[in-house]
């Protein structure tokens, strides 16, 4: 190994440690008693590790309800979003139709609409139409993300040969049928990526739920943790324990599907 190589590995390892420190510190602090979290000098390994924080948040707070809401919302919106994105991506990639360019332009433009612009009016519209609940407001408006459609279009162009479509048409298959039985199976790697991306976005989303959800029975995990922390008492101990637990599902999803995510996510951007 050359000197240069050694330097590269050292630098990357150092950087990796820097990236990991906050996470490790968070996990370690979750096992500390409230008054030890800020002890000086700081200890990486708690002198008296305790599970009390975890017990307190699981017993004293509706943690499972938060987790359930977050997970269900993320799963449902991911399932629908993946389907709609594949469908639209396929539509853009493999058909010629009038206004195609203009419509695609509109789609791409929507990437440049800042979310902060629509939050106030959208919030009001949902309030007035009585749809300001977690199931509608956190799912429906976001099930066709432009980024996902864009990504799927790129992927379809690269991986679905026209000949397959022609062959299917000659066999008399309808277009939707072709999508389901011919195209969708070919998209599996990208579907994985989009699904993880969408799941994580939904599971972790904060601003929109913060505005939309005010009923504590419908709190998502980030909201529950935020409310817990914001409540009188600023309970770092409980919130850290909750955070560690909250991060587990997203980390599992990420690690299981990491390869698909990292490869698939970039497919659209590179070409």
């Amino acid at each position: 190994m050359t000197k240069q190589r050694a330097g590269l590995y050292t630098a990357l390892t150092l950087l990796a440690v820097l990236f990991l420190i906050p996470m490790i510190w968070g996990v370690s602090s979750a096992f500390k008693a409230r008054s030890d979290i800020f002890e000086y000098p700081p200890r990486l390994f708690p002198a008296e590790p305790t599970l009390e924080n975890f017990r307190a948040i699981l017993d004293g707070q509706p943690f499972w309800s938060w987790l359930l809401v977050s997970t269900l919302v993320a799963l449902v919106s991911t399932a629908v979003a993946v389907f709609l994105c594949c469908l639209a991506g396929f539509g853009f990639a493999k058909y010629q139709f009038r206004f195609k360019n203009a419509l695609f332009d509109v789609l791409i433009s929507s990437l440049a609409v800042p979310f902060a612009v629509i939050i106030v009016p959208l919030f009001i519209l949902l309030a007035v139409t009585g749809t300001l609940n977690v199931w509608f407001a956190l799912i429906v408006p976001w099930v066709a993300p432009a980024f996902g459609i864009f990504m799927m279009r790129q992927y379809v162009e690269q991986s679905v040969p026209d000949e397959l479509l022609h062959a299917a048409r000659i066999d008399g298959a309808g277009e939707f049928r072709i999508f389901l039985s011919v195209v969708l199976p070919l998209l599996r790697p990208a579907v994985g990526a989009l699904a993880v991306w969408n799941f994580l976005n939904s599971y972790n989303s904060f601003l929109w739920p913060l505005i939309v959800v005010s009923d504590p029975d419908q709190y998502t995990l980030p909201l529950g943790l935020q409310a817990l922390f914001g409540a009188e008492g600023r309970q770092y101990d409980l919130v850290l324990a909750g955070s560690v637990l909250a991060a587990i599902p997203s980390l599992i999803v990420f690690f299981v599907l990491r390869k698909q995510l990292l490869d698939g996510l970039t497919a659209g951007a590179v070409k």
């Binding site: 309030a127 300001l132 409310a227």
Partner: peptide, 21 residues
């Protein structure tokens, strides 16, 4: 009983009034 943080309670009360619920 409904519990929520202080700001949310007011936001939600106003929202409910707007939505006439």
């Amino acid at each position: 009983m409904t519990a929520a943080n202080a700001g949310d309670l007011v936001s939600r009360a106003i929202t409910q009034a707007v939505a006439r619920r």
